[in-house]
Design a binder for these strands. Structure first.
Lengths: 266, 266
DNA sequence: CGACACCTTGAAGAGGTTCAAGAAATGTGG
DNA sequence: CCACATTTCTTGAACCTCTTCAAGGTGTCG
């Protein structure tokens, strides 16, 4: 979390990633059709399904910008004025709430197809930081336009409601984890959750690359980085997983599930 | 948490509280004007402000039922089909997510003017239990009608979005608490939060009556009931509060705030 | 008034933290 | 491309907070 960058979403192309972004920009310019949600392969994840042609056209107009966010920098930070939701096109983010004094709490990890920024609606100001864990690309969806189109396209309206409710339910799960589970159960639940979401995106259900550090995992799970590391080692000793730095191979998913379900409350 | 009652929201009058509900029902019948949101003294809390006459009329039509929920019984339970949001007219609720095996986690305490049921939108099924901590009265707001009117009344639309976002932000705070704070900080934060919400409703900012047991507080805060009890005792020893069963008098709010802010992360 | 739920307090124990040191990986500048 | 600095990860040992287990006290409601 070295980045003390102020909240800056590159409006077009950050100079630092010149070569790569130039390639991408030209793609955008030449094949502007491909920008549309209707052509996006993440569509099923962040947009409602079953729209007719007219509705699709309206929704397509939602995306105004496609900022790249470099690894370690913020898409938005606590206190930034809220204007848009962001759909992640590629890459991983973390969101964290913090207190000025110390470090804060990671409240979630988000991947391609997921939505960032729902926290900002409450007070027209963001109440958490969204930090890219790797070089990422997002779609900016101005919220006033979302509301406008939601009033016309019922499917979009309901979709937004579901997105927000899903986030509430997800956080219920994290509260259960933080309030009731022990270290092994927490890490098992974390791994299974990641795997499940990656599988939904067509990735292997037995291999994963952690985009976050042990410290970030620990913050999310309410543990120290040492405990996370030790628990990884224990899982490896038990033959449940194989760990090679950030590469994790699942040897025995059933064992992980058993751990989570056995979650004996206090 | 003795109640093993199935999810049943008394459609009119639960027999067991005959006398009281008869009184209230007759009130409803005779003074039906008073049912409208426009005449409800909780309006500022659960409804948007600044509606014109026409909009107000439409919103007034939202409330279909006004079920009473007796202490210890459920307004809804995990798995119940989702149909409505509920605005609390009077009384306290808790929401909890559970695993079949053991007990679960209290995810929040809700008081008059607050909204229950947002969890159900995600999957058209409720994903937590809402249990009355005392005899309560709620307003049922069918969600399809909310969506319908939201498409016409922009203020309502935005209000619903804010409600959901606020819940997301609130849960961020709980995650911070569960992930980073020690017992004293948790309980201090809990008390301050209750006080603040009660003050908003015109109650004293130095006295409160806990509607929940030590066990429920503990579940919410990720602690055992013993630790909650001990921490109350410690606060009392330190002269920060005076505890008499469920009556808590705040002697030194500043000390509580100091505790929460000093929250030294791990 | 008795049964039951709720609360308090004590003592022992465990799980996780803290502190510390070294190893491995990653990034940077010459 | 290599050497050095930095970040990240692992592992050990001591400690501490909170849990667990237990018993007794207090309040409440039929």
């Amino acid at each position: 979390m070295s980045s003390s960058t102020t909240s800056f979403v590159s409006p077009a192309t950050p100079l630092v990633v010149r070569s790569r972004s130039l390639v991408l920009r030209s793609t955008v310019d030449q094949l502007s059709i491909k920008i549309a949600c209707s052509n996006c392969n993440m569509r099923e994840l962040c947009m409602p399904i079953g729209l007719n042609a007219d509705e699709l056209r309206r929704v397509d107009g939602l995306v105004t910008r496609r900022p790249f966010v470099k690894r370690g920098t913020a898409l938005f930070r606590t206190g930034d004025p809220f204007t848009s939701l962001y759909a992640i096109r590629s890459g991983f983010f973390k969101t964290c709430v913090g207190t000025e004094d110390g470090r804060g709490q990671v409240t979630g990890f988000q991947m391609a197809g997921e939505i960032l920024g729902l926290d900002g609606i409450a007070a027209d100001v963001h109440s958490c930081d969204a930090i890219a864990l790797e070089d990422t690309e997002v779609c900016a969806l101005p919220f006033d336009r979302i509301e406008e189109i939601s009033r016309e396209v019922q499917a979009l309206q309901h979709h937004v409601h579901k997105l927000m409710s899903r986030e509430i339910v997800r956080e219920h799960g994290v509260m259960l984890l933080l309030g009731n589970m022990r270290a092994e159960e927490r890490l098992a639940a974390f791994l299974l959750n990641l795997l499940q979401r990656l599988q939904l995106r067509g990735f292997s259900s037995s291999d994963l690359v952690l985009r976050m550090t042990r410290e970030e995992i620990g913050s999310y799970l309410g543990l120290t980085l040492e405990t996370v590391s030790r628990t990884f080692s224990k899982f490896a000793e038990d033959g449940v997983i194989t760990v090679n730095q950030r590469h994790v191979h699942i040897e025995n998913a059933a064992a992980l599930k058993l751990l989570v379900n056995h979650e004996q409350c206090r």
